[in-house]
Design a protein around this nucleic acid. Sequence first.
DNA 1: TTACAGATAATAGTTTTACTATTACACGTA
DNA 2: TACGTGTAATAGTAAAACTATTATCTGTAA
Lengths: 225, 225
Amino acid sequence: MPQVNITVDINENIYLRDPLETDLGKRIIEHAILLLDEIGFEDLNFKKLAHHMKSTEASLYRYFENKYMLLAYLVAWYWDIMHFTLLMDIRNIKEPKKKLIRSVETLVNSLNESTTPSYIDQNKLHNIVVENAAKVYHTKKVDTLNKEGFYINYKKIVKTLSEIIREIDCDFKYPRALATNIIEQSLDSEYYLDHLPSLTDTQSRSTDSKNETVKMITYMLDRIL
Amino acid sequence: MPQVNITVDINENIYLRDPLETDLGKRIIEHAILLLDEIGFEDLNFKKLAHHMKSTEASLYRYFENKYMLLAYLVAWYWDIMHFTLLMDIRNIKEPKKKLIRSVETLVNSLNESTTPSYIDQNKLHNIVVENAAKVYHTKKVDTLNKEGFYINYKKIVKTLSEIIREIDCDFKYPRALATNIIEQSLDSEYYLDHLPSLTDTQSRSTDSKNETVKMITYMLDRIL
DNA sequence: TTACAGATAATAGTTTTACTATTACACGTA
DNA sequence: TACGTGTAATAGTAAAACTATTATCTGTAA
């Protein structure tokens, strides 16, 4: 099977050198996902990552300014692929309401294998985004980073979702806020269920929790729209 | 006017030494709020904070294990006082729906002067919580911290809000998730408006944005409940 | 009033993490 | 095979995180 280079559209301000252009770069992404999932962002540093992938600290600094930029890259990547997946999943659906429900399902069920290259563990990437996305958006540097286009991928998927909402109800006053809220809930509800269950209502982890989350969000949406 | 010692109910696992029991401790809280608001959590360290309050690094380490614990303390403090304020604000309201609307107003409008001691800048504390609360809840150590009771204050206010929701509709299936969602929106919507306006719908910062946020949340709640 | 105990804070470090200047290597081209 | 270009590794420095020890302060009892 031929190696297909996937195209991801990520702002070049995020990295120093494009990691997808070299083997070392791809290995950085691969191992960053493995190690971040394992030890978390706070405990990650470039020394550990270098050791994990049998490279050196200095090499990592050639690709990313620091670990925040590396995280920003992974999150941007996630939203880029999620946006693509979502567009694929709804492309043949005509009815706006069905489009929205399908979008929620896609968001909650995360990425599927076919859209990510083989060196990416998409479930781990999903967990990393759930655990750390807020750290990319909540920083004193938010305005600078925003100007440099760091958040474009997230904004795009919010825009797509808000347009579906407007298709359902063109007079609805808060399409963007609702879209943002849906996306955040799709990330958070599973995390809360696993770690802070008293912040949610779904009882046990044993039943299909992803499906429960979809039901909850669509229930709320049914009433709002 | 006599100095009234406010009572805050914060889990003693968060700190090494109770900062409210000494003058130095209170000064740590005071200056932590000032400096965190100014430079943000990522750029904060105990050396800078010590210099800011004309103390030493070592003294800070006697009160808090590290800057994460200091942040956790401030966030717990915020929710403790917010919970108290909320209970005060709704104590004479009989009708459940009015109770909920008033709760949203309280959450969005943040704390009022009378509930915080003089050395606390409550607006800055509010900004700190908006900017950094997610960092306290999203960490690999979440399960350990949860077991030690770090999140009790947040859980309490979610519980109170969810009970109000059940008063309105005792059959509603997702009172806790909705309560959590309301609280998160009350924090986020202003932040997005200021920094990532394309994630919201309220247009300009010039009009009363807090009021706009209340209107949006109550509009959604009206449809859901 | 002073000698001592107990509590608190400051000094002066060490260890770990973050970051960078420089050197070494690999590969394609003349 | 000599040389330019791109890439990675070595070997550091700078800064942040953390701690062992000493100093000071306060209250109490001889």
